[in-house]
Computed example of a mutant assay.
Amino acid sequence: MKISILCVGKIKEKYWNDAIAEYTKRLTRYCKPEIIEVADEKTPDNAPEAIEQMIKDKEGEKLLKHVDPKAKVIALAIKGKKVDSPGFAKWIDSYAISGCSHIQFVIGGSLGLSDAVLKRADGQISFSDMTFPHQMMRVVLLEQIYRSYKILSGEPYHK
């Protein structure tokens, strides 16, 4: 299975890049991981809602250019469905069993995802009601995908 993470912005901090590299390396045993970054739009301080919407729309257009029409697209969104780690693993497994060969997870920028991206998504998941930096969410998502494969393989890791 190919697993892509489409995300807004580049990671500048070495510690995030190191964590992303580590989980990406671990995942190669189970799937074909891929991270696709699109440039973020600069958001002025105290920008009006209309400007923020335009920024989300521009970032959304960039993300949608990378969506594989054959892939299952899952948006990370605060209002998405919450699942525990075993449930997330079952969910990934159900896609594989149904013949899906590509899952694309989408992480928005600091303002979130555009309506167009959310409408295109086949599903939405949420890791929490809290807001996290998009850099951290890449690491958390990669770790949870890795944990899922460990659970599905019956290997010790998940506790």
Rank of each mutant, 00 (worst) to 15 (best):
residue 3 I to S: 06
residue 3 I to A: 06
residue 4 S to T: 14
residue 5 I to R: 10
residue 8 V to T: 04
residue 13 E to L: 12
residue 13 E to S: 13
residue 14 K to Q: 11
residue 16 W to Y: 14
residue 16 W to I: 14
residue 16 W to C: 00
residue 18 D to I: 04
residue 38 V to L: 08
residue 38 V to H: 03
residue 39 A to C: 05
residue 40 D to F: 09
residue 42 K to R: 14
residue 42 K to E: 12
residue 46 N to D: 14
residue 46 N to L: 10
residue 47 A to W: 02
residue 47 A to S: 14
residue 47 A to Q: 11
residue 47 A to H: 07
residue 48 P to G: 10
residue 48 P to R: 11
residue 49 E to Q: 14
residue 51 I to A: 15
residue 52 E to D: 04
residue 53 Q to E: 15
residue 56 K to D: 02
residue 56 K to T: 09
residue 57 D to G: 03
residue 58 K to P: 00
residue 64 L to E: 07
residue 65 K to I: 00
residue 65 K to S: 13
residue 66 H to M: 03
residue 66 H to G: 08
residue 67 V to H: 07
residue 70 K to A: 15
residue 72 K to F: 02
residue 77 A to Y: 13
residue 80 G to K: 06
residue 81 K to V: 06
residue 82 K to G: 12
residue 86 P to G: 09
residue 86 P to A: 12
residue 87 G to S: 13
residue 88 F to T: 00
residue 88 F to G: 07
residue 93 D to R: 15
residue 94 S to R: 14
residue 97 I to C: 09
residue 100 C to Y: 11
residue 104 Q to H: 04
residue 105 F to W: 11
residue 106 V to E: 02
residue 107 I to D: 04
residue 109 G to P: 05
residue 109 G to T: 03
residue 111 L to A: 12
residue 116 A to S: 12
residue 117 V to L: 02
residue 119 K to W: 05
residue 119 K to P: 03
residue 120 R to K: 13
residue 125 I to Y: 09
residue 126 S to H: 02
residue 127 F to A: 07
residue 132 F to A: 08
residue 132 F to G: 09
residue 133 P to M: 05
residue 135 Q to H: 12
residue 136 M to E: 02
residue 136 M to I: 14
residue 137 M to Q: 04
residue 137 M to T: 11
residue 137 M to C: 07
residue 138 R to T: 08
residue 139 V to R: 12
residue 140 V to H: 09
residue 141 L to R: 05
residue 141 L to A: 03
residue 142 L to F: 10
residue 144 Q to P: 02
residue 144 Q to I: 06
residue 146 Y to K: 02
residue 150 K to S: 13
residue 150 K to Y: 01
residue 150 K to E: 11
residue 151 I to E: 05
residue 153 S to G: 14
residue 154 G to P: 00
residue 154 G to V: 07
residue 156 P to S: 15
